[in-house]
């Protein structure tokens, strides 16, 4: 069944990544996975690293690996602000594993309350989310 369509706009600090009509947006907020359809109630949520799927139609899906960010839905318009967005086909397992090792080292050696440890923990979460995208594929 064809769904009603709405506009999804994805912005990153490096520019606009996506701005098209879609049937559904699938992503993850701090509370869990969320699928946004047309006429969704107004929403403001924090995004967590995961695979962002933009459904142009049932079979045509645009996929990105998404970093942290925010999503806002108002008036049938979904605006996603993400700090980082990578085309899933460009994810590199060995590079991600190297980043994870590095972050784990920092997190193990740094003071648990320090800024750098907090940053390393976030980095680990991000890298693991990206790795699990690769696993699913």
């Amino acid at each position: 069944m064809a769904h009603a369509r709405f506009i999804a706009e994805v912005l990153t600090p490096e520019g606009e990544a996506f701005n098209e009509e879609v049937e559904m947006v699938s992503t993850r907020t701090t509370l869990g996975l969320i699928g946004i359809l047309a006429n969704h109630a107004p929403l403001l949520a924090r995004l967590e690293p995961t695979e962002l799927r933009l459904y142009r139609s049932e079979n045509e899906i645009v996929r990105f690996a998404q970093g942290e960010g925010y999503v806002q839905v108002v008036d049938n318009h979904a605006l996603l602000l993400v700090e980082e967005l990578i085309d899933t086909s460009e994810l590199d397992r060995s590079e991600l594993e190297r980043l994870r090792e590095e972050a784990e080292r920092v997190s193990a050696s740094a003071d648990a309350d320090s800024e750098s440890a907090a940053y390393a923990r976030r980095e680990i979460r991000r890298v693991e989310a990206f790795l699990s995208i690769l696993d699913e594929k």
Binding site: N19, L44, R46, Q72, V74
Partner: peptide, 27 residues
């Protein structure tokens, strides 16, 4: 963004309380 939506989204008639995830305080 050059989108028609952005300007309209600011108008007061749409002062619907949005859902927040997590709660507004935290976000």
């Amino acid at each position: 963004s050059g989108e028609s939506g952005a300007a309209a989204r600011d108008t007061p008639r749409r002062r619907v309380f949005p859902e927040y995830e997590p709660d507004p305080d935290k976000i």
